[in-house]
Each structure stands twice: as C-alpha cells, then as structure tokens.
Design a protein around this nucleic acid. Sequence first.
DNA 1: ATTTACAAACAGTCTAGTCTGTTTTTTAAC
DNA 2: GTTAAAAAACAGACTAGACTGTTTGTAAAT
Lengths: 240, 240
Amino acid sequence: MPADMVSREGAAPSAPRPNPRRQAQRSADMRQRLCQAALDALCEVGYESLTTTMIAARAGVSRGAQTHHFATKADMLVGAFEHLLQSWDAARQLAFGGRDLGELPFEAYLRFVWREIFSKPSYIAALELMLAARVDKELGERLRQALDSPASQRNLRWRALLRFPDVRKEEQFQYMTLCLLRGMAIHASFNRSDAVNEAVLDAWIELAEKVIAVERPDGRAPEGGVVSPRAVRGHSKRSA
Amino acid sequence: MPADMVSREGAAPSAPRPNPRRQAQRSADMRQRLCQAALDALCEVGYESLTTTMIAARAGVSRGAQTHHFATKADMLVGAFEHLLQSWDAARQLAFGGRDLGELPFEAYLRFVWREIFSKPSYIAALELMLAARVDKELGERLRQALDSPASQRNLRWRALLRFPDVRKEEQFQYMTLCLLRGMAIHASFNRSDAVNEAVLDAWIELAEKVIAVERPDGRAPEGGVVSPRAVRGHSKRSA
DNA sequence: ATTTACAAACAGTCTAGTCTGTTTTTTAAC
DNA sequence: GTTAAAAAACAGACTAGACTGTTTGTAAAT
C-alpha cells in the first residue's frame, strides 16, 4: 500500500488523482457532509421549514449532488437521523470508552445522557422526526429500523448499568427514565426555566437510587431492607 | 321605543347591548367549527402537512370566511390550541365536576389524565405545536400565553391533590409526573407497544404513592415508616 | 468505455395571504 | 315603524413564491 494519504488533502472542486479507493471515500465524505448539514438545518429551522434545497446549500454542494446521494427527502431525513445516532455513540465512546458501565454510578450515567444527548437541540430535532413519523408511515418504519440496533444496544448498556435481578422491573425502570428524559427535553425546549429541569433531574436521581438500592441485591443493599425506610424518606438536597 | 340609550354610551367601545346576540353567536359558532376542524386536521395529517385550505374545507366553510376570523395561519393554530385546552377542561369537568381533588386518590387522577389527555392523538398534536414553537418564536409566545392561565390552574389542582407540606418538593413531583406523561405520550406515538406504557404508568403510580406517603403527613402514613420496606419492594402487578 | 459523481435548470404542484365582490346583520335616521 | 347607511360575515378567485423530484448535461474515476 503506497503512502497516498498525502493526496487526501485539497479542495472539493478538483482533485485529479488516479487513486484507487478514492471513489468510495469521496462518496462517504459527501454523504457525511449532507447528513451533518441536514441535522444542523433541522435543529435551526425545525422540521416544518426544512427543505432539501436549504440542506444542499448548507453543505455547500449542488442539488444535483444531493439528489444523487439521497434521491428523496425521506432518504435525507433518515440519513440525518442515523448521523445523529452515530454522534450519540461517539459521545458515549468519548466519555466512557470501553469502560464497564456496571462500575459507574447511576447518577453519573444519567447526568451524562441528559447533558450530552437529551438536553441538546438535536434531541428535539429527533423528536420532531419521531412525531412526524406518526403520519408518515414509511418514514416511521425507516426510523424505527434505524433505531432498532441502537435500541437493543441501549438495552444491553442499561442491563450492565442496573443489573436488577428482576429483568422486567429493570426494563420498566429503564423506560420510565427514558420517558422522563424525553419529557424533560420538551419542557426545556418549550419553557424557559432550566432550573425546574435540574431540580427534576436531581429528584429523579435520588428517587432512582433508592429504587436501585432496593431492587438490586448489591453489596450495600441487603434483602432485609434495613436501608429502605430511611432511604425512601431521606430527600436531602443534592448539591448538583 | 326600547331602552337603547345604552348604545349612545361613552365613546369607542361600540358594543350594542339591547338584544342582538345573533351576530356574535354566528361568529362564535364559526370560530368553534374552524378550531375543531383545525385540531382534527392537525391530529390526522400532522403539523407539517397542515394547510389552511384543508382546515377550511374540513370545516365546510369558504376560505374567505376563514381568513375573516383567523387572518393568519398562526392565528388558526393558536385557536386550535386554545380549543384543545378547553376540551381538557371539559373532560375534567365531566369526570370530577366540582369535586374536591383532595379526596381523590392520586392513582385515580393520574389514570384519568393519562387516559383522557396524554394518551390521545390530540396531545401529540399539542406537542407538535410546542416543538414548532421552538423556531417560530411568535407562535411560541402566543402558545405560552394561552397556556398561562391553564397552567396556574393546574398548579392549584395539584396543590389540592397532593398537599405536600414542602411546596418545593410538591412542585418537583408535579413536574416530574408531567415530564413522564409527556415522554410516555411520545413513546406511545412512536413505538407500537402500549404494554410498556401501561407497565410504566403502573410502576410510577406505585412509586409515587410511596413518595406521597412519605412527603405528606396524612392519616395513613406514619412517620416511623413501618409501611415503607415492604411497600417499596412490593411491585405486585396492578389490575388496572 | 462505462459507471459513478456532480451540476444546474426545469416543471408541476401547492400554499398563505390578498383582494374584490355578495349577503346578512346592525345601527341610525326619518 | 320603515328604511337607508354601515359594518360585519361570508365567498371565491388570484398571485407570487417556494418546494420536491426529474431531467439533461459534464467531469471524474474505474
């Protein structure tokens, strides 16, 4: 393999180099740029005002190039959605690497997902897509499909994080937390007060830790429940 | 000659009082029809595909009549939103009348709001409006304004329902429940499984009742916490 | 030489808001 | 009490712009 990494530089319009493997790279780059632009545009102008023309302009490419890679608007939207899912993976990788989530406190992980995922405008964009999927059945099917593998990976992560003996209860707990975070994302978007959300997040962490302590026969949570009474009642303020 | 001297009143407010209720009635009816049609259309086709023409057609009125009552599309949307809020009031009135919420179990009220408000497609419509308000600042301001009085009334209801001595905690609890319900609404819309939502609702009710028992020095919640250990661990299936 | 990547113009459709005109109701004068 | 003027309710056409998908054309890569 020749050292052709140097030829990877240069501007978009002209790159006259007879390099093998270049076509696929170019295509992938272009798709990446378009998806990122689509996501940015979606965050900025919202789903209703999002147009394919605007996406192409944002990415700095012609509309012809765009339609070559994403024939229809729905293709473009699905691409943006997948791009967002990948960015979440990247953020998680950056924060925790390959660390075992089982050794992580629940609070740490929850604050991470709130800070890096749910509280971002891009999550609202994702919600807009999901709500739009209610009437656009084909889009919905494709979004669900894109979410399929990430969702099962999320299940594995939460399994590692929580380790409830009762898997059914663990799942309930997971979905409850997910719903809460989604609702908080909406609240943060529509209302102005971030203070409320911070307080709710703190309160949920506190409540959740008690549930975890009870559900999981960990080192510190005996079956007898000697911790429970005090734990449930102790709503001491968290410093955040 | 009837007593129409009232009409010579003062200056600007040209609002004749004698007997003519006909015009106002017609106007109110038409607005009602349009708002209902707008809400229906919003539920059926979603925010992105909602058009003023479609609303007028659905209401069975001409576009001229529509623009007379709602000059702009945003006016129409705000009208639909207010209409929805009123329908929630009506449902609550139907279910509980003037009953004191303090005598109502938390579970009963929560199941009511889930069944009659949050699980309905119209709530998704409301969410679409709220998300759209993120970029349409003027719409957002008007929606928040429309929600202002209903929200403070909701606060009063939850105060009556929960009666926590610590008002701050009560507010946290209220917002937590609200966020949870919102998130569940999205989940119900995007995913297919209602079973998950039912389970989450059950679980939240159970958890919430413990929080209530601890926070509120009611008749049945002793300070000693003799109920807590068994209660927290007992996730017995609820019959619903 | 043939496929892929990119470019740009085009066509058909649709939408929100405006404008002009008609009917009904209300007000005010007679 | 009748009637004319005014205002409000209603109807429908029109416009200017925008959007998506298509099509035709060119450059680059294989």
